[in-house]
Each structure stands twice: as C-alpha cells, then as structure tokens.
C-alpha cells in the first residue's frame, strides 16, 4: 500500500497535530513514512501545508509528486483548493467549512463553497461546530482527522492509538476528548459516503 496525503491550513491552525497522529499510527503499523513540514516565515498566518507519505515500501521523495495524492485534508475551506495539482483524479478532499479570514481579498463564501462542492469526492464538514458541541472546541483538528480516516488505508484502531500516543502526556481527559472528536468526524464522513 501507499498513501500520499496533503495537509493544508493557515499558519497557526495546528495541522501538524493531525500529521503527528497519522505518523504515529503508521509507525505502529510498521510502515515507512516521510512527512515534510513548513516552518519559518509562512507560519505567520500564511498558507501552510504538510506532505505526508506512508507506504509499505521505503519512501523516496519527501515531497509528493504532482497528481499523486490520494487525499487532501484541509482545516480551512479555501486552502483545500490550493493543492489541487497534487491530487489524483479520483482523490478525495476532506475539508473544514469554517473560513479563516486574515486577508482583505478572501473570496465570497458562497462562491467558494460552490467551487468546493462542485468537485467530486468531497467531504465538507463543520469541524469547529462539531467540536463545540462536544464541549471541546480545541479538538476540531481531531474531528478533521476522523472525517479523513475512512480514506486512510490503515486500521482505525491504529489511528486511535496514534491519537492516544500524541496526546498521552496531556492526561486522560484530553485523550478522551480527542478520541470523541475523532469518532464524531468519522461518523460524519461515513454517513455521507453511505448516503
């Protein structure tokens, strides 16, 4: 197996917590992985992305070649479209619908969502709202990971274990909140896929 994932968002939104959980899961599964991150200037509110590559064979390039990604996970709607050149024809976009507006020329929201929804293979989810309902507003990224999990060719238990490992040092309460968020996101995606 091999799966190439683009994680997208805005500097400061914490996309690396998602990458870390999947990365930990892939190590649990004895898979090879490489994960390229963005540090430095762009972290100041700019567009950021992470390339996450997992395979049962050694991974060569740290960057995903264009047209090779199975999945884009974006914690911000406009950012989900920025990396389309990397997505395979039949690849999936899993995106949060809550916009992060820190530029004067942010597109009109309805038009943006129409553009996203016009694509095939999209899961658009209000991760912030779901996290809020779970009384855990800071775990929206785990809602996103949960919504993306059906497209990650790995046992769901491995991803759960990854979340436990990553948040473990913050205590059981934080771990459980994040697991709850993970499940809520997964349920949401599966309902759409089965509809």
């Amino acid at each position: 197996m091999k799966i190439d994932i683009i994680l997208a968002g805005v500097g400061g939104q914490g996309i690396l917590s998602i990458a870390a959980c999947i990365g930990m899961a892939s190590i649990e599964e004895q898979l090879h992985m490489k994960q390229a991150e963005v540090h430095g200037m762009s972290q100041r509110g700019g567009a950021v992305q992470s390339h996450l590559r997992i395979s049962d064979k050694p991974v060569a390039s740290d960057l995903i070649p264009e047209g090779n990604a199975e999945l884009i996970i974006s914690v911000e709607p406009m950012e989900s479209l920025r990396y389309i050149p990397f997505l395979k024809n039949n690849g999936w976009i899993v995106t949060n619908v809550k916009p992060f507006i820190n530029i004067p020329n942010y597109p009109e929201y309805e038009a943006l969502m129409a553009e996203i929804n016009a694509r095939k293979n999209v899961i658009a989810i209000d991760a912030d709202e779901i996290a809020k309902q779970l009384k855990s507003p800071r775990s929206s990224n785990m809602v996103m990971l949960g919504a993306a999990s059906p497209f990650i060719e790995m046992p769901f238990e491995a991803i759960e274990k990854g979340v436990r490992e990553i948040f473990g040092r913050k205590g059981d309460e934080v771990v459980n909140k994040n697991l709850e968020a993970l499940h809520a996101g997964r349920d949401f995606a599966q309902k759409i896929m089965n509809a």
Binding site: G11, M78, E79, L81, I103, N105, E115
Partner: peptide
C-alpha cells in the same frame, strides 16, 4: 477563486 495568503 483561491486568493494568495502571504504571511503577515
């Protein structure tokens, strides 16, 4: 529709 988002 995707606008540039430079650091700020």
């Amino acid at each position: 529709i995707v606008a540039n988002r430079p650091p700020a």
